[in-house]
Simulated scan of single mutants.
Amino acid sequence: MKKGILLVNLGSPDSPEPKDVKKYLGEFLMDERVIDVPLWARNLLVKGIILNTRPKASAAAYKKIWWEEGSPLIVLSERLQNKLQKQVEQPVALAMRYGSMTIKKGLQELVDKGVEEVLLFPLYPQFAMATTETIIVLAEEIQQEYFPNLNIESVPAFYNKPDYIEVLSNSIKRHLQGKNYEHLLFSYHGVPERHIRKSDITKSHCKIDGSCCATASKAHEFCYRHQCKEVTRLVGEKLKLEEGSFSTSFQSRLGFDPWLQPYTDRTIERLGKQGIKNMAIVTPAFVSDCLETLEEIAMEGEEIFHEVGGKYFTTVPCLNDDDEWVALLSKWVKKWATSESILA
């Protein structure tokens, strides 16, 4: 069977104009795995409130980070796709969960090239309902409806794989070389606490009480909070970071329900008020720089830090199309192509 790879990232508006941002936000926020409330409530919240207030502000944020070539997330994902294609024999397609670069189009591109078996690669190191799960579920629905003869295998979360931790650690070390930072903050995209409990396959382990993430459990296979904390721990060990010189936080909360804590903006503020003058921040929930890293962290985060007395604020880029990262993806794809366990 001819094999192919479909890389899937989050997505982006077609332009930073309010009408395109509104369309994108509508699709994104109406996903039942992003805002997991009953349809009537989601309609009321998204279509009745958010889409009447947020697109203009979001469009302004997108305009701050938009590149001449287009959306940074799309451009960087395409660079990754092109580099990977040069290292593997199998066709590599790119799709987005939201926006005009649909998963259906990506699968169709591969099918048109004679592909019968697809490696679906959600570009997220950690598993979450609102990222990996929604990609896999939609891909399965599309496959059943439009491509019944196509076989799809999904890449599991790779947050704790030694070769991934090595690539991530090397990238952090390289970008912080010569920077005498006092604190390294690992900022991950936030999710509501209820997502953690919903993803708990044991239905009893996840209590978000400070101890469950460190206690062995089958729940960790799908626990976003545990997986984020584990990335921080493993990178801390790899880079031999001193205890107290690094920490974990979560960004991008929405609404009034409790989200994973501590919050990134408040953590940056607290560190500055505690006298930290030189801090660095890395965002390992993303493999490609995007609005959340380029605007929310690199711009808003730095502004918060300076307002409370901080002086030097360094952001570590995502892996993007880093050559080591591309080489690792190539290694995994070649394993899959020869029927080996991809992440073994």
Rank of each mutant, 00 (worst) to 15 (best):
Y62M: 09
I276K: 15
K56G: 00
E27D: 15
L120Y: 07
A214R: 13
D112I: 04
A344M: 02
E140P: 01
L184Y: 12
S339H: 14
E243T: 13
T53S: 14
L120W: 10
F250H: 11
S171N: 12
I135A: 01
K203F: 12
S249R: 05
K105I: 06
T264N: 03
K198P: 04
E300Q: 09
M279N: 00
S247A: 13
P317T: 02
E292W: 06
E292V: 01
Q90P: 00
D265L: 05
D112P: 01
E303G: 00
H189R: 09
T267N: 00
V235W: 08
R270D: 12
A216L: 08
K3A: 09
L76A: 02
V92F: 12
V21P: 05
P38A: 07
N278M: 05
S71F: 06
E78M: 06
E133G: 01
V46P: 10
S211T: 15
K218Y: 05
G210R: 01
E89N: 15
K203M: 06
Y181P: 00
P317R: 02
P156I: 03
S187I: 09
T131G: 10
E133W: 13
V115N: 11
L138D: 12
E243A: 14
V88C: 06
V111D: 03
P262A: 02
L343P: 01
E193K: 15
Q81T: 09
K104Q: 15
L39H: 11
P125E: 08
R253C: 10
I342V: 14
Q85W: 01
Y62R: 02
Y24H: 02
E221S: 08
F186E: 03
T132I: 11
E153R: 12
K19S: 15
S12N: 13
E166G: 00
F127R: 02
L84G: 08
A57Y: 10
T248Y: 03
R225H: 15
C206N: 04
E17R: 07
S204H: 07
L6E: 07
Q274I: 03
V287N: 04
L260K: 05
I297K: 00
P262K: 04
R197Q: 14
T202L: 11
V8C: 08
D322L: 05
Q143P: 02
I142A: 04
A60T: 11
C212Q: 05
S204A: 11
F186M: 09
P72V: 12
Q274L: 15
G255R: 01
L76P: 00
Y181M: 09
G106N: 03
A139N: 05
S217T: 11
A337Y: 13
N82L: 07
R233M: 07
D163Q: 13
C223R: 07
L107P: 10
E68Y: 14
